[in-house]
Amino acid sequence: MSQRTCAPPLIEMAGAALTSEDVVRAIDAWHGITPPNQVALEFARDLARVIAAFEALAPVEFAAEPSDFARALAEFSDTPK
């Protein structure tokens, strides 16, 4: 069933305001995936919170090297070295 006829709830995003129609259109365009059900649109509203929380983080410096997760696990290991 198509959900495109549903009333689009507003998704607030930092620096922009996207409607769920925008999200639906983007996902369809990039992934060829359409909302499978009403629950998908309910969860889509939660996406705004996820995006906003991420955008609120301090930016990483331009030249910063990617951090090494495996090395950090080893460095702080509880196993006697």
Binding site: A26, I27, P36, V39, A40, F43, A44
Partner: peptide, 12 residues
């Protein structure tokens, strides 16, 4: 529905 619905927004 709860599984596909939960996955769906990840693609955005």
């Amino acid at each position: 529905a709860n599984v596909s619905g939960r996955m769906y927004p990840a693609y955005a």
